[in-house]
Structures are given as C-alpha cells and as structure tokens.
C-alpha cells in the first residue's frame, strides 16, 4: 500500500478556527453555508490563524512527487478536511474528498504572487479561486473570475505573470476522474512499486513529469483519450507507451507526424510540442510562457533509450 499522509490530528482543530468570513455566512446548516460567495481575502479562507500569517494548525502541507511546471515559480501546497471526515481512498485512481475539503497552492517569484484555492462544496461540486498578493506580502485579494493577463511581477520571466481564469482552472482540473491533481495515490505514494520499462529511474522521472504536466488533459477519459499520459500505480507505463510510441498525431507540427519515435527525440512530435511556445503548438496549451528546458532534456534522454516495441 502506498504511503499516504494523514492530516487527522490537526483537522480536529478546524472547528475552532473557522475563517473570519464564516461569521457572515447566511446561517445554520440548512442554508448551505459553503454556497456563500467566496471570501474577498485569503485571510478569510482558513489558511492562516486569524489576524496573522501563521499557518492554521488545521492545514497540512504536502508536496506531490511530480510538480506542474509553472515558469519557474516556487510553490507550496496545503490541505484541510472538515473535522471528523476522511478521504475515501478505495479507488487509487480517484480518491474521494468529503464536502468542505479545501486545498491551497501558493506561487512565488521572489515574494508570494498568488494563492489558489479549491474547495468542495456541500452539494459535491468544486469551486476555484485565486488570491493575488499585495506588494508588501501582507494580504491577498480575490482575483476576478476572468483572471489577470500579463500582470507585472518582478522575478517572473519577462516580468509578467498570468493569473488563470476560473475556466482555465476547470480546464486543467476537471478533465480527469477527480479535480484534485497533486494529492493522489500516484502523486503521494512511493513510486518505487510502479513497474517501469528500461532505465527505471529515468523512466519514472520522465513519465512522472508527463503525468503531472499532461495527464490532467491526456487521460483515459473524454475526447483526448487517444493519448494517455497517466502514470498509474497499478498498471505502470504500458498504456502510456501504447498511446505514444510510433503513433501518428492528428496534425503535423514542424512537419513531425509521429508522437514518439523510439531512440529519436528529434523526430518525436511530443518533444517539439514541449519545446514550442508557438501558441498554436505548445504543450501544455496554457499556464506557461517559458519552455521547461530541464524537463525537455529529461524526456529527450528517456526517448533516446527507448527501443522499438517487439513485433515491429
């Protein structure tokens, strides 16, 4: 069984530390309190102890095995569960989170830039928000739902930073079986148990990267399922390889037609798409303006040592 972190002792305190905004909520349980409008300030979401920037004891930090590339931003992540609740982990591919679960993710370039919030509501739906930090780093305010394009941020590449729109959040977070992407069996387990072909460490790192950066869109669901980059704890890498190796892409990119040519990263469209920041070709198609050179080199090395599947 994968190692899974357990937030429970801390969670019991949550009841005592309801966010400041909670007192303005429309009343007792029958009024569906979590359908209240989003708090206007990050300090009202329960991440910090009231009146301070000290983390609330009700939140628990976590780090996924493989991170999403966000143009070099540093990130921190936290979860809180309502008191007395637990995560249902019976399906390793789709953990179920109780209503009231909250996740935060903070992005920094030199100082904090934004903190994103995901919350599961009483009716089972999820909502998404981003809070933008003021220049002194003392408070973050709710960003407009349509996001902020090219916000000036010193330290960010090119001095600009994009806050995603709520639709952008949903585009990445709602393409798979659960909207939570970095708090899952694949992302928290010790991955050593996952069966890997070829050079084990290299394959694990490369496929882990593709899982974190691509599998929220390219998974076994929906119309993009023809290319599946989900690293599954149970099945390892077989399906990923099947959907990539020697498979023809829908459209040519820089005249490359094949997704992955074993041994030839330069002939593999997947690599060209990862390198490109041509808006019509780049992968992922949103959330990044700058190529992740380290990851490109990693995926290139992985493709170099792949051999053509038997029977070819």
């Amino acid at each position: 069984m994968p190692h899974v972190f357990s937030p429970y002792p801390a969670i019991a305190l949550l009841a005592l530390l309801l966010p400041a905004g909670a007192s303005e909520l429309p009343g007792p349980a029958d009024a569906a309190p979590d359908l209240a409008p989003l708090p206007g300030r990050l300090s009202e979401t329960g991440l910090y102890e009231p009146g301070s920037l000290r983390l609330s004891p009700a939140v628990q930090a976590f780090t996924p095995n493989f991170a999403l590339w966000s143009d070099g931003a540093a990130k921190r992540r936290w979860i809180s569960l309502p008191p007395g609740t637990a995560i249902d982990r019976s399906d390793p591919a789709a953990w179920q989170f109780p209503p009231g679960t909250r996740f935060w993710k903070e992005f920094s370039h030199a100082g904090p830039v934004e903190t994103r919030l995901i919350e599961r509501l009483a009716d089972g739906t999820w909502r998404y928000a981003s809070y933008v930090w003021d220049s002194t780093g003392t408070e973050a305010l709710l960003a407009p739902a349509y996001g902020v394009l090219r916000m000036p941020v010193s330290g960010a590449p090119g001095g600009v930073y994009d806050i995603p729109s709520e639709e952008d959040c949903r585009m990445c977070h709602e393409g798979g079986p659960v909207p939570v992407l970095g708090f899952s069996a694949a992302q928290l387990s010790t991955v050593d148990d996952t069966p890997m072909p070829g050079n084990e460490t290299l394959a694990r790192d490369a496929l882990g990267y593709l899982h974190a950066n691509c599998a929220h869109c390219h998974n076994d669901r929906g119309p993009l399922s023809d290319i599946d980059l989900t690293l599954s704890v149970a099945d390892g890498a077989d399906r990923i390889l099947q959907t990539l190796v020697d498979r023809e892409a829908d459209t040519a990119v820089q005249s490359l037609r094949v997704r992955v040519v074993p041994g030839k990263p330069g002939d593999s469209q997947l690599v060209a798409r990862m390198k490109s920041r041509n808006p019509n070709h780049q992968m992922p198609p949103l959330g990044t303006r700058v190529t992740d050179d380290v990851a490109v080199a990693l995926v290139e090395r992985w493709i170099e040592q792949l051999t053509a599947p038997e029977g070819n």
Partner: peptide, 23 residues
C-alpha cells in the same frame, strides 16, 4: 465527426481548440 457534445460545449464555453487546447 469525432467530436463529442461535451467537446463542442467546452470549445465554445472555454474558447479553446477542442475544448482544452490552444485559444
């Protein structure tokens, strides 16, 4: 021909190619 209704709805709503791709 290979589009689903969901893909079509997402494309128009999100303004993204095939619902989740380039603008």
């Amino acid at each position: 021909g290979q589009w689903t209704e969901r893909m079509f709805r997402d494309a128009i709503r999100n303004g993204r190619h095939k619902g989740r791709g380039r603008p």
